[in-house]
Design a protein around this nucleic acid. Structure first.
Length: 445
DNA sequence: TCTGGGGTCCTAGGACCC
DNA sequence: TCTGGGGTCCTAGGACCC
């Protein structure tokens, strides 16, 4: 725990709705609701005027309409939001190199990462920051909290929101936390709050009566240990300015449930292509393809396949998602379909890049188990080798999905069978454990 | 007219390897 | 022959966040 209040949290007030009011003067002072405007939309952001009618984020649009029928309902202009966000993030980076955006409208800044940081100047710094944000964005207001930790900084932001700020004096954290509802603690949502309520915990101070072991027993290892610490204001989480993406996904909720499998197949293909495009745009590729389906009763299932190596190729992601869909019961129709890719690698499987990689210095102490250079995507062609080590922990790399004729050696037969397989046949993937397990092969004409 | 879309992290069980 | 842990990877689901 750092001794000085040097973690800053900034949150733009009713961000999407405020951008709309900024750009359309006729909306100023009036209830504005941004969100999905279709049959099954939900509220993304409500202006403070709309909040007076009880409209909240994540509420269904249907309910928002009945609560506030005269509001302006807008579907959102994300380019405008991204532009305003970029201006604010840039201003935050002028305070310190350590800026961690949480979303378009929110970020942490570690002020102490600036060598010239002076704790005595924080109040002025905050006032100037909020003035600059308003000026640079054409009038958007921000709320700011500063404290000795992320937890307390974020809580502080809420204290004088909107258009205000609060600095938590070091040492006062527990007094501030004690009367607050437990749900102010990061990671305590409705399900956890309900469990805590069962053991008489509704406020943060109530948590203190329970040992770490009791909390772990109730909530599980990670959540229990985390709540035990955070409830006491103990939070050493660092502000991290370069977090890597872990997954990319695209999903769609339909206006009405879709039953027709051919139609679902085409939608699945389109979602997979969009996910692949976004991967390529981000210079990423991934190994695990996940299909998500939601039924009429809102039950949600996922099915995933891990490929032998990362890909960003539409064809492979489309085909993999399709096979997952084919194996999924869509009997009563689907409300939602989604395709995601995870297990991301940030190298691009691209011939140009692979040549550059050849020139890169050899990494030392690299086990020869996996190729030192990123594997290169290729089409299967005659004469190409298929490698597995003794346990099948080799690799194969396929971009095509046609048929491949492979002559296998196996652990038991030096000249094994010739088999014609689809390029995505499990027998060609590492870790395949059919007996006898193929250990090597050659692609034949 | 209930319940978006983009994510992150955790848990738990099974397979497999050592 | 029986017993046994630890570690990793994969899959599926759930909670949570903005």
């Amino acid at each position: 725990m750092r001794p000085t209040a040097s973690i800053l949290h900034l949150d733009l007030d009713a961000f999407f709705a405020s951008v709309e009011q900024r750009d359309k003067p006729s909306l100023r002072g009036k209830p504005v609701i941004v969100g999905g405007i279709g049959q099954r939309g939900v509220v993304s952001t409500a202006s403070y005027e709309a909040r007076r009618y009880g409209v909240r984020s994540a509420m269904s649009m249907a309910e928002a309409r009945s609560r506030c029928p005269h509001a302006a309902f807008l579907s959102g202009r994300f380019d405008a939001y991204r532009a305003a966000s970029a201006v604010v993030m840039e201003r935050l980076r002028s305070l310190s190199p350590a800026v961690e955006p949480l979303s378009l409208d929110e970020a942490f800044v570690d002020l102490a990462a600036d060598p010239e940081f002076d704790p005595d100047t924080v109040p002025e710094l905050v006032d100037r920051l909020r003035r600059d944000v308003a000026e640079l964005t054409g009038g958007l207001t921000a709320s700011v909290g500063v404290a000795t930790s992320k937890l307390m900084a974020k809580i502080a932001t809420e204290i004088d929101k909107p258009d205000g700020s609060f600095i938590v004096a070091p040492g006062t954290e527990r007094d501030l936390l004690e009367p607050m509802p437990v749900t102010v603690i990061a990671g305590v949502g409705p399900a956890t709050a309900a469990r805590l309520h069962h053991v008489g915990v509704t406020r943060v101070g109530d948590v203190w009566r329970h040992s770490e072991a009791e909390l772990i027993d109730l909530l599980g290892q990670a959540a229990g240990a985390s709540l035990h610490r955070l409830s006491r204001g103990i939070d050493d989480r660092a502000v991290s300015s370069h977090r890597e993406n872990k997954s990319v996904s695209t999903e769609d909720t339909f206006e009405t449930d879709i039953v027709d499998r051919a139609e679902l197949g085409l939608i699945c293909d389109a979602l997979a292509r969009r996910t692949a495009e976004r991967l390529r745009k981000a210079g990423l590729s991934g190994r695990t393809v996940t299909l998500k389906v939601r039924y009429h009763d809102f039950t949600t299932h996922t099915r995933s396949t891990t490929l032998p190596g990362p890909t960003d190729q539409s064809r492979l992601i489309v085909a993999t998602a399709r096979r997952l869909l084919d194996a999924t019961d869509t009997g009563g129709g689907l409300r939602l379909l989604g395709v995601g890719v995870s297990g991301l690698a940030d190298w691009v499987q691209d011939d140009l890049f692979a040549e550059e990689a050849d020139d890169a210095p050899e990494p030392l102490e690299q086990e020869p188990r996996l190729p030192a250079d990123p594997p290169r995507a290729h089409e299967w062609s005659p004469g190409m080798d298929v490698h597995h080590d003794e346990y099948g922990d080799g690799w194969v790399w396929g971009r095509g999905l046609g048929l491949v004729t492979v002559r296998f050696e196996t652990r038991h037969t030096p000249v094994g069978p010739v088999r014609t397989l689809r390029a995505d046949d499990p027998a060609l993937t590492p870790g395949h454990r059919e007996s006898p397990s193929p250990v090597a092969g050659t692609v034949e004409e």
